[in-house]
Simulated assay, not measured.
Amino acid sequence: MTIAPERTAEAVKDPRELVSPEVFALLVEDIMRYDHVTRAYAERLIGQALVFLKAHAELIKAAATDPEAWVRIVPSVPVDEGWHAFLKRTKPYHEFGMTHAGTYLHHVPVVDADILSVAALERTVPILRATGYHVDMEFWEAGAGAGCCPPECSTIAD
């Protein structure tokens, strides 16, 4: 008799759901063209950028009613590239922010000790997982580096 191990992995949502199929395809094509990567890699990268932006949006919404809810999260270097690709698609990027955060998601690049530390990425990953979307750890391990996101990178417009 064979005993199957109990499944403990929880189901997670696909980050492609966060944008239309057309927008996802445009972003993937942009990453493939400018970064010279495979389609599979570009799809995974854009997925992780979307998960990061969804987490930022949720933090912004929570902080609007409870300032203590704000936690600084940071993109890894590759995920930051995906964020930049989305920024270049201004209309869908604006719509994403309005839909998920109720505001435009600003990006103000800076590098500081917190961003360069492993602690910044370690703080980010559980918040990403809390969104319920798939977190691809290849993009979030300490070796992935840290992107250019400052404390005010995704703030409500002044």
Rank of each mutant, 00 (worst) to 15 (best):
T2D: 04
A4E: 15
A4G: 05
A4C: 09
T8C: 12
A9Q: 14
K13M: 05
P15R: 07
P15Y: 06
P15T: 03
V23A: 09
A25V: 02
A25H: 08
A25Q: 11
L26H: 09
L26W: 11
L26E: 14
L26V: 07
E29G: 06
D30F: 02
I31Y: 09
I31S: 10
M32E: 15
D35N: 13
V37S: 12
T38D: 13
T38N: 08
A40D: 15
A40F: 13
Y41I: 13
E43K: 12
L45E: 15
L45N: 12
G47S: 11
G47T: 05
G47C: 10
Q48H: 06
Q48I: 03
A49G: 13
A49Y: 07
L50E: 07
F52M: 05
L53V: 03
L53Q: 09
K54G: 00
H56E: 09
H56D: 05
E58Q: 12
E58W: 04
L59G: 02
L59Q: 05
I60F: 04
K61M: 12
A62K: 14
A64H: 10
D66Q: 13
D66L: 08
P67N: 12
E68W: 08
A69D: 08
W70S: 06
W70R: 14
W70M: 12
R72P: 06
I73S: 10
V74D: 10
P75E: 03
P78M: 02
V79P: 01
V79C: 03
D80C: 04
D80K: 04
W83A: 00
F86R: 02
L87V: 01
L87M: 01
K88E: 08
R89P: 00
P92Y: 02
P92E: 00
P92V: 01
P92N: 01
H94A: 00
F96H: 07
A101C: 05
Y104T: 01
L105T: 04
H106E: 00
P109R: 02
P109M: 02
V110L: 14
D112T: 14
A119W: 04
A119K: 11
L121A: 14
E122S: 10
V125H: 11
I127A: 13
I127G: 06
L128S: 02
L128M: 03
R129Y: 10
R129N: 10
A130G: 06
T131W: 00
G132L: 01
D136P: 01
M137G: 09
E138D: 11
E138S: 05
E138T: 04
F139R: 07
F139C: 05
F139K: 06
W140Q: 12
A142K: 13
G143M: 13
G143F: 14
A144P: 10
A144L: 10
A146D: 05
A146T: 05
C149M: 09
C153F: 01
C153K: 00
A157C: 00
D158A: 03
D158G: 00
